[in-house]
């Protein structure tokens, strides 16, 4: 790997590197094959920064299979295991068990992080059973669901994590059948129903918050889960330079609020906790996938967003 200093032609003093809230070291290398502006690729970069080489990754069939690079290339500086679509929860269980049987330290400070990195389809749909098994059995590993709200790898089909009103290639509109008719499935609520020690939402627009959560997931024993909001310009029909802005708007509109659930306690991590959520239109209007929504549709979605947001605030109030 070429050191970043060389690329940028500047020297960064060691003492400053140490103080950075986002680790300086790169373990997700140039030459990966993600689309321009891919939120998932940025997410991977942060995870590989947070854990360095002390992690073992498992990736099921999804865009990240491709992003990591075809044989004989790999963009990963840490070991990576590619597996079948629905198996992430089971494979990380097996890896964790094997490492323990070999006497390795897993999780915790200096422990190896066993990380599953799966899409919303591989998590909320086909992989839900294996995820549940992994959570319920209490393995010391981290499962990250990077949420781009559809099956992107197969060409933008809806998943149960696709929001109301979205166009996808199998919710195309048409006279009889409208766009996606169901609201986004709250996978994290299903995870929390397992009473896991640690679950959180995160966003590529808030990397410091994300890295902090990754560190927490490392420190807290037992299974942890992070749902990472990861815009996909290709599938969302959005400009490639707007991914971070979109991820930020998703938080600011409370469409995808940032929060943590730690040992039974909820904590909301919004950037401006006092501020009222922005109207959902601000998030919608930058994306081609929402352009078919009528005024009424937008109202339906807006209502859902605010209701969910109120519910979360209540939870944080009661179980804070």
């Amino acid at each position: 790997m070429v050191p970043l200093e060389e690329v940028r032609g500047m020297e960064i003093p060691e003492n400053i590197k140490k103080r950075l809230s986002i680790p300086f070291e790169e373990n997700f290398y140039a030459g990966h094959t993600a689309c321009q502006g891919c939120g998932a690729a940025l997410g991977l970069r942060y995870v590989l920064k947070a854990y360095g080489k002390k992690a073992i990754f498992t990736i099921p069939a999804c865009c990240s299979t491709i992003i990591a690079g075809p044989w004989p290339y790999s963009a990963f500086g840490a070991p990576l295991f590619h597996t079948a679509f629905e198996t992430t929860g089971a494979v990380i269980s097996g890896i964790e068990a094997a490492l323990k049987a070999k006497g390795y330290k897993v999780k915790g400070k200096d422990g190896i992080m066993v990380v599953g990195w799966a899409g919303d389809g591989g998590t909320a749909d086909i992989g839900l059973q294996a995820l549940s098994g992994f959570l319920e059995r209490g393995h010391d590993a981290l499962y990250i669901m990077y949420d781009n709200e559809a099956y992107m790898n197969t060409g933008i089909q809806r998943s149960s994590s696709t929001p109301y009103g979205a166009w996808t290639t199998n919710t195309p509109g048409g006279k009889k059948h409208f766009l996606e008719k169901r609201h986004k499935k709250k996978v994290i609520d299903i995870v929390i129903a397992h009473k896991v020690p640690y679950a959180a939402t995160a966003s590529i627009a808030f990397p410091e918050d994300f890295i902090r959560k990754l560190k927490k997931a490392q420190e807290i024993p037992g299974p942890s889960f992070i749902q990472l909001f990861a815009p996909c310009p290709t599938g969302w029909r959005s400009p490639t330079d707007k991914s971070i802005e979109l991820a930020r708007l998703a938080v600011q509109t409370a469409y995808f609020p940032l929060f943590e659930y730690e040992n039974g306690k909820y904590k909301i991590n919004m950037p401006n906790p006092k501020k009222e959520p922005k109207p959902i239109e601000e998030f919608l209007k930058l994306q081609g996938r929402f352009k078919y929504m009528t005024k009424e549709d937008i109202e339906v979605l807006q209502e859902w967003v605010l209701r969910e947001w109120e519910e979360l605030k209540k939870k944080a109030e009661v179980f804070g």
Partner: peptide, 28 residues
């Protein structure tokens, strides 16, 4: 027998966990 016994939730996960374990370098 000194081993980790994973009580998986399906055979699909049984073999997947074995795949993970074997890939991590142990007899499964």
């Amino acid at each position: 027998l000194d081993a980790e016994f994973i009580k998986v939730e399906s055979e699909h996960s049984a073999i997947s966990a074995c795949v993970g374990a074997s890939a991590a370098g142990v007899r499964a």
